[in-house]
Protein backbone atom coordinates (compact mmCIF):
# COMPACT_ATOMS: atom_id res chain seq x y z
CA UNK A 1 0.00 0.00 0.00
CA UNK A 2 2.68 2.37 1.05
CA UNK A 3 4.81 1.84 -1.98
CA UNK A 4 1.88 2.47 -4.28
CA UNK A 5 1.16 5.89 -2.87
CA UNK A 6 4.79 6.83 -3.11
CA UNK A 7 4.80 5.68 -6.67
CA UNK A 8 1.85 7.83 -7.62
CA UNK A 9 3.24 10.83 -5.81
CA UNK A 10 6.41 10.48 -7.78
CA UNK A 11 4.74 10.97 -11.11
CA UNK A 12 6.19 14.30 -12.13
CA UNK A 13 3.78 15.69 -14.70
CA UNK A 14 0.66 15.93 -12.49
CA UNK A 15 0.44 19.68 -12.00
CA UNK A 16 1.10 20.78 -15.52
CA UNK A 17 -1.44 18.49 -17.22
CA UNK A 18 -4.32 19.45 -14.96
CA UNK A 19 -4.26 22.93 -16.37
CA UNK A 20 -3.76 21.80 -19.93
CA UNK A 21 -6.24 18.92 -20.02
CA UNK A 22 -9.20 21.03 -19.01
CA UNK A 23 -9.41 22.67 -22.38
CA UNK A 24 -9.06 19.52 -24.49
CA UNK A 25 -11.74 17.85 -22.40
CA UNK A 26 -14.11 20.73 -22.73
CA UNK A 27 -14.23 20.40 -26.49
CA UNK A 28 -15.23 16.72 -26.60
CA UNK A 29 -17.75 17.29 -23.88
CA UNK A 30 -19.32 20.16 -25.78
CA UNK A 31 -19.25 18.04 -28.91
CA UNK A 32 -21.09 15.24 -27.10
CA UNK A 33 -23.71 17.70 -25.91
CA UNK A 34 -24.10 19.21 -29.37
CA UNK A 35 -24.57 15.79 -30.92
CA UNK A 36 -27.18 14.88 -28.35
CA UNK A 37 -29.00 18.11 -29.06
CA UNK A 38 -28.93 17.45 -32.80
CA UNK A 39 -30.30 13.94 -32.33
CA UNK A 40 -33.00 15.29 -30.07
CA UNK A 41 -33.98 17.79 -32.74
CA UNK A 42 -34.21 14.96 -35.27
CA UNK A 43 -36.52 13.07 -32.93
CA UNK A 44 -38.73 16.13 -32.62
CA UNK A 45 -39.21 16.53 -36.37
CA UNK A 46 -41.75 13.70 -36.23
CA UNK A 47 -43.78 15.70 -33.73
CA UNK A 48 -43.41 18.76 -35.96
CA UNK A 49 -44.80 16.78 -38.90
CA UNK A 50 -47.86 15.80 -36.87
CA UNK A 51 -48.37 19.38 -35.78
CA UNK A 52 -48.01 20.45 -39.41
CA UNK A 53 -50.62 17.97 -40.58
CA UNK A 54 -53.14 18.84 -37.89
CA UNK A 55 -52.39 22.56 -38.19
CA UNK A 56 -52.82 22.79 -41.95
CA UNK A 57 -55.98 20.65 -42.00
CA UNK A 58 -57.54 22.52 -39.10
CA UNK A 59 -56.61 25.95 -40.48
CA UNK A 60 -58.01 25.39 -43.98
CA UNK A 61 -61.05 23.50 -42.71
CA UNK A 62 -61.78 26.36 -40.32
CA UNK A 63 -62.02 28.73 -43.29
CA UNK A 64 -64.15 26.17 -45.12
CA UNK A 65 -66.60 25.84 -42.24
CA UNK A 66 -66.99 29.59 -42.06
CA UNK A 67 -68.74 29.36 -45.42
CA UNK A 68 -70.40 25.97 -45.19
CA UNK A 69 -72.30 24.88 -42.12
CA UNK A 70 -71.15 21.72 -40.38
CA UNK A 71 -74.71 20.38 -40.37
CA UNK A 72 -74.95 20.67 -44.17
CA UNK A 73 -71.53 19.07 -44.47
CA UNK A 74 -72.61 16.05 -42.46
CA UNK A 75 -76.21 15.64 -43.63
CA UNK A 76 -76.53 16.87 -47.22
CA UNK A 77 -76.92 13.97 -49.63
CA UNK A 78 -75.07 15.58 -52.53
CA UNK A 79 -71.44 16.54 -53.07
CA UNK A 80 -71.19 19.06 -55.91
CA UNK A 81 -68.83 21.76 -54.64
CA UNK A 82 -67.65 22.76 -58.09
CA UNK A 83 -71.10 23.23 -59.63
CA UNK A 84 -73.05 26.47 -59.72
CA UNK A 85 -75.59 24.85 -57.40
CA UNK A 86 -73.04 23.81 -54.81
CA UNK A 87 -73.79 21.08 -52.27
CA UNK A 88 -71.32 19.98 -49.65
CA UNK A 89 -72.60 16.65 -48.34
CA UNK A 90 -69.53 14.62 -47.42
CA UNK A 91 -71.69 11.49 -46.98
CA UNK A 92 -71.52 10.84 -50.73
CA UNK A 93 -67.75 10.54 -50.46
CA UNK A 94 -67.76 8.69 -47.14
CA UNK A 95 -70.10 6.06 -48.59
CA UNK A 96 -67.67 5.44 -51.45
CA UNK A 97 -64.80 5.01 -49.02
CA UNK A 98 -66.81 2.67 -46.78
CA UNK A 99 -67.96 0.47 -49.67
CA UNK A 100 -64.51 0.03 -51.20
CA UNK A 101 -63.04 -0.58 -47.75
CA UNK A 102 -65.71 -3.16 -46.92
CA UNK A 103 -65.11 -5.04 -50.19
CA UNK A 104 -61.37 -4.93 -49.58
CA UNK A 105 -61.74 -6.28 -46.06
CA UNK A 106 -64.05 -9.07 -47.23
CA UNK A 107 -61.13 -10.23 -49.37
CA UNK A 108 -58.20 -9.41 -47.14
CA UNK A 109 -59.35 -10.57 -43.71
CA UNK A 110 -60.35 -14.15 -44.58
CA UNK A 111 -57.46 -14.58 -46.99
CA UNK A 112 -54.90 -12.95 -44.73
CA UNK A 113 -56.05 -14.91 -41.69
CA UNK A 114 -56.07 -18.25 -43.52
CA UNK A 115 -52.61 -17.61 -44.94
CA UNK A 116 -51.35 -16.58 -41.52
CA UNK A 117 -52.76 -19.75 -39.92
CA UNK A 118 -51.29 -21.92 -42.66
CA UNK A 119 -47.86 -20.33 -42.46
CA UNK A 120 -47.72 -20.34 -38.69
CA UNK A 121 -49.34 -23.71 -37.88
CA UNK A 122 -48.94 -25.95 -40.93
CA UNK A 123 -46.07 -24.82 -43.13
CA UNK A 124 -42.55 -26.06 -42.63
CA UNK A 125 -39.79 -23.57 -41.96
CA UNK A 126 -38.43 -23.72 -45.49
CA UNK A 127 -41.86 -23.15 -47.07
CA UNK A 128 -42.45 -20.19 -44.78
CA UNK A 129 -39.08 -18.60 -45.52
CA UNK A 130 -39.78 -19.02 -49.21
CA UNK A 131 -43.40 -17.85 -49.39
CA UNK A 132 -43.26 -14.87 -47.05
CA UNK A 133 -40.99 -12.61 -49.13
CA UNK A 134 -42.95 -13.45 -52.28
CA UNK A 135 -46.24 -12.61 -50.55
CA UNK A 136 -44.79 -9.36 -49.30
CA UNK A 137 -44.12 -8.38 -52.90
CA UNK A 138 -47.91 -8.02 -53.18
CA UNK A 139 -47.67 -4.94 -50.98
CA UNK A 140 -44.54 -3.69 -52.76
CA UNK A 141 -46.31 -3.25 -56.09
CA UNK A 142 -46.94 0.48 -56.66
CA UNK A 143 -50.59 1.39 -56.14
CA UNK A 144 -50.89 3.03 -59.55
CA UNK A 145 -49.97 -0.34 -61.10
CA UNK A 146 -52.78 -1.91 -59.09
CA UNK A 147 -55.06 0.77 -60.47
CA UNK A 148 -54.15 -0.27 -64.00
CA UNK A 149 -54.74 -3.90 -63.07
CA UNK A 150 -58.16 -3.14 -61.57
CA UNK A 151 -59.33 -1.06 -64.52
CA UNK A 152 -57.94 -3.12 -67.39
CA UNK A 153 -57.87 -6.68 -66.04
CA UNK A 154 -60.24 -7.18 -63.11
CA UNK A 155 -63.13 -5.11 -64.47
CA UNK A 156 -63.10 -6.77 -67.95
CA UNK A 157 -62.87 -10.18 -66.25
CA UNK A 158 -65.84 -9.39 -64.01
CA UNK A 159 -67.75 -8.06 -66.99
CA UNK A 160 -67.62 -11.55 -68.47
CA UNK A 161 -69.67 -12.68 -65.45
CA UNK A 162 -71.92 -9.60 -65.13
CA UNK A 163 -72.12 -8.11 -68.63
CA UNK A 164 -73.87 -4.96 -67.39
CA UNK A 165 -71.15 -4.05 -64.89
CA UNK A 166 -70.05 -0.48 -65.61
CA UNK A 167 -66.45 0.16 -66.69
CA UNK A 168 -65.82 2.08 -63.48
CA UNK A 169 -67.07 0.32 -60.36
CA UNK A 170 -66.24 0.06 -56.69
CA UNK A 171 -66.23 -3.75 -56.74
CA UNK A 172 -63.07 -4.24 -58.74
CA UNK A 173 -61.31 -1.38 -56.98
CA UNK A 174 -62.21 -2.91 -53.62
CA UNK A 175 -61.16 -6.42 -54.69
CA UNK A 176 -57.77 -5.18 -55.83
CA UNK A 177 -57.21 -3.15 -52.64
CA UNK A 178 -58.09 -6.35 -50.78
CA UNK A 179 -55.33 -8.31 -52.50
CA UNK A 180 -52.98 -5.42 -51.92
CA UNK A 181 -53.45 -5.49 -48.14
CA UNK A 182 -53.40 -9.29 -47.74
CA UNK A 183 -49.66 -9.24 -46.85
CA UNK A 184 -50.20 -6.62 -44.15
CA UNK A 185 -52.90 -8.72 -42.53
CA UNK A 186 -51.15 -12.06 -42.97
CA UNK A 187 -47.68 -11.10 -41.87
CA UNK A 188 -48.69 -9.23 -38.72
CA UNK A 189 -51.21 -11.95 -37.73
CA UNK A 190 -48.63 -14.63 -38.34
CA UNK A 191 -46.15 -12.91 -36.08
CA UNK A 192 -48.83 -12.71 -33.41
CA UNK A 193 -49.69 -16.41 -33.73
CA UNK A 194 -46.10 -17.49 -33.66
CA UNK A 195 -45.64 -15.56 -30.44
CA UNK A 196 -48.18 -17.87 -28.76
CA UNK A 197 -46.13 -20.21 -26.55
CA UNK A 198 -45.64 -23.76 -27.79
CA UNK A 199 -46.88 -25.32 -24.56
CA UNK A 200 -50.42 -24.11 -25.28
CA UNK A 201 -50.33 -26.02 -28.56
CA UNK A 202 -48.80 -29.05 -26.89
CA UNK A 203 -51.56 -28.98 -24.31
CA UNK A 204 -54.18 -29.03 -27.05
CA UNK A 205 -52.43 -31.83 -28.95
CA UNK A 206 -52.17 -33.84 -25.75
CA UNK A 207 -55.94 -33.64 -25.39
CA UNK A 208 -56.29 -35.09 -28.86
CA UNK A 209 -57.06 -31.93 -30.83
CA UNK A 210 -56.14 -31.84 -34.48
CA UNK A 211 -53.98 -29.04 -35.85
CA UNK A 212 -57.06 -27.28 -37.14
CA UNK A 213 -58.77 -27.39 -33.75
CA UNK A 214 -55.59 -26.19 -32.09
CA UNK A 215 -55.21 -23.38 -34.58
CA UNK A 216 -58.80 -22.18 -34.45
CA UNK A 217 -59.63 -22.73 -30.79
CA UNK A 218 -56.32 -22.23 -29.00
CA UNK A 219 -53.80 -20.28 -31.06
CA UNK A 220 -56.16 -17.87 -32.83
CA UNK A 221 -57.98 -16.70 -29.67
CA UNK A 222 -54.69 -16.38 -27.78
CA UNK A 223 -53.22 -14.22 -30.52
CA UNK A 224 -56.38 -12.17 -31.01
CA UNK A 225 -54.79 -9.00 -29.67
CA UNK A 226 -52.04 -9.03 -32.28
CA UNK A 227 -54.46 -10.16 -34.98
CA UNK A 228 -56.70 -7.19 -34.22
CA UNK A 229 -53.70 -4.94 -34.76
CA UNK A 230 -53.19 -6.58 -38.15
CA UNK A 231 -56.83 -5.97 -39.12
CA UNK A 232 -56.63 -2.33 -38.02
CA UNK A 233 -53.52 -1.88 -40.13
CA UNK A 234 -55.43 -3.33 -43.09
CA UNK A 235 -58.41 -1.05 -42.47
CA UNK A 236 -56.20 2.05 -42.33
CA UNK A 237 -54.53 1.06 -45.58
CA UNK A 238 -57.85 0.45 -47.31
CA UNK A 239 -59.39 3.73 -46.16
CA UNK A 240 -56.40 5.78 -47.23
CA UNK A 241 -55.87 4.00 -50.54
CA UNK A 242 -56.08 6.49 -53.34
CA UNK A 243 -54.78 5.56 -56.76
CA UNK A 244 -56.71 2.31 -57.21
CA UNK A 245 -60.05 4.00 -56.53
CA UNK A 246 -59.12 7.13 -58.48
CA UNK A 247 -58.37 4.99 -61.54
CA UNK A 248 -60.91 2.17 -61.32
CA UNK A 249 -63.91 3.40 -59.32
CA UNK A 250 -64.71 6.53 -61.29
CA UNK A 251 -64.76 10.04 -59.88
CA UNK A 252 -68.49 10.72 -59.67
CA UNK A 253 -69.60 11.32 -56.06
CA UNK A 254 -72.70 9.15 -55.51
CA UNK A 255 -74.45 8.30 -52.30
CA UNK A 256 -74.77 4.56 -52.77
CA UNK A 257 -73.86 1.37 -50.96
CA UNK A 258 -73.98 -0.79 -54.07
CA UNK A 259 -70.45 -1.89 -54.97
CA UNK A 260 -71.46 -2.52 -58.59
CA UNK A 261 -71.86 1.21 -59.17
CA UNK A 262 -69.19 3.80 -59.86
CA UNK A 263 -68.56 6.29 -57.07
CA UNK A 264 -65.89 8.61 -55.72
CA UNK A 265 -64.15 8.10 -52.41
CA UNK A 266 -62.76 10.88 -50.24
CA UNK A 267 -59.25 10.19 -51.51
CA UNK A 268 -60.35 10.10 -55.15
CA UNK A 269 -62.04 13.46 -54.76
CA UNK A 270 -58.85 15.03 -53.39
CA UNK A 271 -56.96 13.67 -56.40
CA UNK A 272 -59.59 14.92 -58.81
CA UNK A 273 -59.45 18.46 -57.43
CA UNK A 274 -55.65 18.43 -57.29
CA UNK A 275 -55.48 17.51 -60.96
CA UNK A 276 -57.50 20.56 -61.88
CA UNK A 277 -56.55 24.16 -61.42
CA UNK A 278 -58.43 25.61 -58.47
CA UNK A 279 -57.27 29.00 -57.19
CA UNK A 280 -55.57 28.98 -53.80
CA UNK A 281 -57.96 30.19 -51.10
CA UNK A 282 -61.25 29.43 -52.90
CA UNK A 283 -63.94 27.29 -51.31
CA UNK A 284 -63.24 24.57 -53.86
CA UNK A 285 -59.62 24.54 -52.75
CA UNK A 286 -60.66 24.36 -49.12
CA UNK A 287 -62.97 21.38 -49.72
CA UNK A 288 -60.00 19.06 -50.14
CA UNK A 289 -58.70 20.00 -46.71
CA UNK A 290 -62.11 19.47 -45.12
CA UNK A 291 -62.25 16.09 -46.89
CA UNK A 292 -58.72 15.32 -45.71
CA UNK A 293 -59.69 16.18 -42.14
CA UNK A 294 -62.68 13.84 -42.39
CA UNK A 295 -60.42 11.10 -43.77
CA UNK A 296 -57.95 11.57 -40.93
CA UNK A 297 -60.73 11.51 -38.33
CA UNK A 298 -62.21 8.28 -39.73
CA UNK A 299 -58.77 6.64 -39.79
CA UNK A 300 -58.19 7.81 -36.24
CA UNK A 301 -61.56 6.44 -35.15
CA UNK A 302 -60.75 2.97 -36.48
CA UNK A 303 -57.33 3.09 -34.87
CA UNK A 304 -58.75 4.05 -31.47
CA UNK A 305 -61.38 1.32 -31.74
CA UNK A 306 -58.67 -1.14 -32.72
CA UNK A 307 -56.50 -0.08 -29.84
CA UNK A 308 -59.36 -0.62 -27.40
CA UNK A 309 -60.06 -4.09 -28.84
CA UNK A 310 -56.38 -4.90 -28.75
CA UNK A 311 -56.24 -4.04 -25.07
CA UNK A 312 -59.38 -6.02 -24.34
CA UNK A 313 -57.98 -9.19 -25.92
CA UNK A 314 -54.47 -8.84 -24.56
CA UNK A 315 -53.27 -11.99 -22.86
CA UNK A 316 -50.22 -12.34 -20.70
CA UNK A 317 -48.44 -15.66 -20.53
Amino acid sequence: MDTMEVHIAEVPVEKKTVVRSLAPRLVPRLKEKAIELLLQLAAFTSVAITLGIVGVLAYESFHFFQQVSVVDFLTDRQWTPLFADAHYGILSLVSGTLVTTAVALLVAIPMGSLIAIYLSEYASRSVRECVKPVLELLSAVPTVVYGYFALLFVTPTLQKIWPDLPGFNMLSAGLVIGFMIVPYVSSVSEDAMRAVPVYLREGAFALGATRMQTALRVVFPSALSGITAAYVLGVSRAIGETMVVAIAAGMQPTLTLNPLEPAATMTAYIVQVSLGDLPHGSVGYQTIFATGLMLLLITLLFNIAGHALKKRYRQVY
Partner: peptide
Protein backbone atom coordinates in the same frame (compact mmCIF):
# COMPACT_ATOMS: atom_id res chain seq x y z
CA UNK B 1 -46.71 4.97 -34.37
CA UNK B 2 -49.68 7.15 -35.32
CA UNK B 3 -47.86 8.89 -38.16
CA UNK B 4 -47.21 5.51 -39.77
CA UNK B 5 -51.00 5.03 -40.03
CA UNK B 6 -51.83 8.41 -41.57
CA UNK B 7 -53.03 8.03 -45.20
CA UNK B 8 -50.36 9.16 -47.65
CA UNK B 9 -52.63 11.68 -49.35
CA UNK B 10 -52.93 13.58 -46.07
CA UNK B 11 -49.17 14.18 -46.20
CA UNK B 12 -49.75 15.63 -49.64
CA UNK B 13 -52.39 18.03 -48.30
CA UNK B 14 -50.05 19.12 -45.53
CA UNK B 15 -47.24 19.71 -48.01
CA UNK B 16 -49.58 21.68 -50.26
CA UNK B 17 -50.68 23.97 -47.45
CA UNK B 18 -47.31 24.28 -45.76
Amino acid sequence: ANLAGVPSIVYGLMALGL
